[in-house]
């Protein structure tokens, strides 16, 4: 093979970026769905992701204590329980902190959401302690891409799992939104909430459903990233949430393919910056990219331009 080393280096950074980007995308979908329907930024979404990680760790530790060692079983159980619990959290948060505030000034639910985010973060801190909790690697190994001598790119099995799960989830969600009855109701709500309500659709139920789906996706990201990095603490939700939100806006908030595209773009940009420039500046470049794109395409890459209503 005559491919130069620098190409493999680029491939490696691309793989790293896409891995991180996939999980940004999963969290970003939650933001985008909620925004698309009720036009509200759910700032507590990052904390849901964090809670998902914690639940996954608890499940994994519990199964290990019962002596269950089958990795696929553990992973499936972690996904299932974590998604169920975070869905319940998503539903409760919407019910308690957002539903009473709907319809007023849009700043009000935003403040409430920030408060909710602080509350959840500290709840977990008090309950679980602020220390890093670590878990041994469950899935190790991977495949090498490129020559055995010299530099080659590696793609770990864990990274493959992240890609595959992310892709399956996105296709599933797209199918759900475009084909199912409830998905159609969701789209109707996004189009015009009041009108949909008048047409006899239970909009409260649809909004709750949106929060539940978003929370479940955040849990998927939480489980995946928890297993990938192996370390969690109560503070991981904030930055992940911020990045995912950036990804959602980058892709055009309200658009699900946009959130995915934005997430991947953000992840790759960060990896390339860290790989060719310096890891210190990857966050600066990520936010600068956002600002640049918004300046030239004020509603994001795939977003629909806003229509001014009189």
């Amino acid at each position: 093979m005559a491919m130069p080393e620098s190409l493999y280096y680029f491939i490696q950074q691309l793989i790293n970026g896409l891995t991180v980007g996939s999980t940004y995308a999963l969290i970003a979908i939650g933001y985008t769905m909620v925004y698309g329907i009720i036009g509200m930024i759910n700032f507590a979404h990052g904390e849901i992701y964090m809670i998902g990680s914690y639940i996954a760790f608890i499940v994994i530790a519990a199964l290990a204590m019962f002596g269950i060692e089958s990795v696929p079983l553990i992973i499936v159980a972690a996904f299932a329980i974590s998604m169920m619990v975070t869905s319940a959290y998503g539903y409760s948060i919407e019910r308690v902190a957002y539903r009473p505030l709907r319809g007023g000034n849009r700043l009000i639910p935003l403040i409430s959401a920030i408060g909710m985010s602080i509350f959840l973060q500290n709840l977990v801190r008090i309950a679980q302690g602020s220390r890093d909790i670590a878990m041994p690697t469950m899935i190790s190994g991977g495949v090498d891409i490129g020559p055995h001598e010299g530099f080659h790119a590696t793609l770990s099995y864990m990274q493959m799992i992240i890609f595959v799960v992310t892709l399956i989830t996105m296709f599933g969600l797209t199918l759900f939104i475009s084909r199912s009855r409830m998905g159609r109701a969701c789209r109707a709500c996004a189009e015009d909430l009041k009108m949909t309500n008048l047409l006899g659709i239970n909009t409260n139920g649809i909004i709750a459903l949106t929060f539940v789906i978003g929370a479940a996706l955040a849990a998927i990201a939480g489980v995946l990233l928890g297993m990938y990095y192996g370390v969690i603490n109560p503070y991981i939700g904030f930055m992940a949430g911020l990045k995912a939100f950036t990804a959602a806006v980058l892709g055009g908030i309200g658009s699900i393919p946009g959130a995915v595209l934005g997430g991947l773009l953000l992840g790759v940009t960060e990896a390339i910056t860290a790989g060719y420039f310096s890891s210190e500046y990857k966050d600066v470049v990520a936010f600068a990219l956002l600002i640049l794109i918004l300046l030239f395409r004020p509603s994001g890459i795939l977003g629909r331009p806003e229509v001014e209503k009189v």
């Binding site: 490696q12 891995t19 990233l225 890891s279």
Partner: peptide, 20 residues
């Protein structure tokens, strides 16, 4: 000789750089 950000979780890009 490079700085990282305390609290970061993903160092894969840095490690690829060290390998290269």
């Amino acid at each position: 000789f490079e700085g990282i950000t305390a609290g970061d979780k993903d160092f894969s890009a840095l490690i690829a750089k060290l390998r290269q």
